[in-house]
Amino acid sequence: MSTQATPAPDGTARLWHPHHAGHDVIATRTFGFWLYMLSDAMLFAGLFATYLVLDHAVNAAGGPTPHEIMHVRAAFVQTLLVFSSVAAYGFGMVALKNGRKVGVLLGLGIAAVLGLVFLGLDVRGLTALAAEGATAERSGFLSAFYTLVVTHGLHMAFGILWMMVMMVQVVREGFTTNVVYRLLNLKVFWYFQALVWVCVYCFVYLRGVM
């Protein structure tokens, strides 16, 4: 920022820049959202820390142990779904770069559908566990496991809801500044879910069967 403002036409000094372009609205909002995202990651840090404490044998309280409940191949299918959903959203963002509304809507739509399939598998897996008696209340280990998986699932669910809202906004408003920064924020949010899932897959599912 320049400290040398141009004088007023009559020669008096001015302390502001009359033709300053204004701050970058989009960058301000995306950076702010990025900082929020990092705080959201700290929420997951707490959940991971809790899980690592409670997956010890004593916290199984005589109930199922990690080895018994982790289905790593099914979880790999979920990994495939999350990554595919993120890729679809990414292609939507390429369409945004090129100003193609249909491309953006397709990207959002496919990402949302794949996300919903992921959530369906999540729900199916957890209800199957609960049906066997491995409910969240059964042991500290299971409480930690359910909380971590459900928290990630809730993040996915809200992301999908946000995608649907954005699809409506893209159709109604087109690519305004507001719509664009929201799409960028959703991009960061969605990519972050894939990043968190890498940690969930490796340190919860895979580690559970080692």
Binding site: I26, A27, M93, K97, G99, F175, T176, V180, Y181, L184
Partner: peptide, 8 residues
């Protein structure tokens, strides 16, 4: 908006 570096 579409010319913003982050979109690009």
């Amino acid at each position: 908006a579409l010319q913003h570096p982050e979109v690009q």
